[in-house]
Simulated assay, not measured.
Amino acid sequence: MTTEDKREVIYRHSGAVRATHWVNVIALLVLLMSGLQIFNAHPALYLGAKSNFDDPVMAMRPMKHGDELFGITTIAGWNIDTTNLFGVAYDEAGDYEIRGFPWSVTLPGHRDLATGRRWHFFFAWLFVINGLIYLIYSLISGHLRKDLAPSGSELKHIGASIWEHIRLKFPQGDEAKRYNVLQKLAYLIVALVLLPLMLATGLAMSPGMDAGYPFLLEIFGGRQSARTIHFIAASGIVLFVVVHIVMVLITGVWNNLRSMITGRYAIKLPEGQS
């Protein structure tokens, strides 16, 4: 038997984990794209209760230099030329369109703010309900404590884990049967920090919730601050998803997909282990 043949198939993900994972995939994709649709209605972020057009935290807007119009993205006072990407886009005929993100990455489509909001709110509640189901399952089954909570010894070796990932050296054998410390920390940051922040700021910006519970906006320092925090939290989740997809591609697309469809995951055994 060759080294390549030395593999062990384990049952890695339960049915509940797999089901909630795929609901999250759909919900997050629609939330992101409909969220960009909403953002494009006014592609700028501020701090405080009101919009300060002269001092945005971030903005995608047109700026004229001479006779030419450029798309400029402003981040904390720094101006970056993002023509044809953010701010202003030209077509082949030379005509331009002023917008934030490209309409191709928004749902439901070109300048449909009302429908975008309805989609966003519907899938936000789907995402919340799905998250509560996952949380209840994790607490009852012990998944949160056994699989996601890092131990003290794992935290002490976080530097070594980072170095191994930089070298694209991934766990084998028994170590591959459980999440590594970086995975655990990433999942916990998303689940316990970014997602609650996104949910809380989203509720704070809802007119119905704002009318009944005005203190929500006060907690975040005003509507515009809540919108900015919501955008930052969403960006953090997008970054997590991008890294997650890259790791899936690097460590084996079919093996990772199979584990999230059937629950079964093949781990490579170190040489000399059978």
Rank of each mutant, 00 (worst) to 15 (best):
G77F: 06
H42I: 06
L28A: 15
K177W: 02
A200Q: 02
A93N: 12
F215G: 08
V190Q: 00
D67A: 05
A200N: 01
T262G: 00
I38D: 03
A226H: 11
L69P: 06
L269P: 02
Y134D: 11
R178F: 15
W125D: 06
P196Q: 03
T106L: 13
A49T: 13
M209Q: 09
V248H: 01
T83V: 13
L29R: 00
A19L: 14
P43M: 11
F123E: 03
L132E: 08
S151M: 11
H21A: 01
A124K: 10
V241T: 15
H244C: 11
N84S: 07
I261A: 08
F53R: 10
T3M: 14
S235G: 05
L126Q: 00
S104A: 09
A76F: 15
I129P: 00
P150A: 09
D112T: 14
Y90A: 10
A233E: 11
I158W: 12
E97Q: 14
N79I: 00
F215V: 09
A176G: 05
G236E: 07
M58L: 12
L203C: 07
M60K: 06
G15P: 07
S235N: 01
K169T: 09
L188Y: 09
N79K: 08
G100F: 10
I38N: 13
G152D: 13
L135E: 12
R12H: 04
N256W: 02
K169R: 14
F231W: 03
H244T: 01
P171S: 12
E4M: 12
M209C: 12
T3F: 15
S225D: 08
I245V: 14
L197Q: 01
P270K: 07
S206D: 14
V248R: 02
A27V: 09
P108S: 02
H157K: 11
E218F: 05
G35W: 05
L249A: 14
R264Y: 05
A234I: 04
D54S: 07
G131W: 05
P196W: 03
F121M: 12
T228C: 08
P196H: 01
D174T: 11
D147H: 06
Q183I: 04
A49W: 06
G152L: 11
S259K: 03
L47N: 12
H143S: 12
F220W: 05
A41P: 01
I166S: 03
R223C: 07
I136C: 08
P171A: 12
N79H: 04
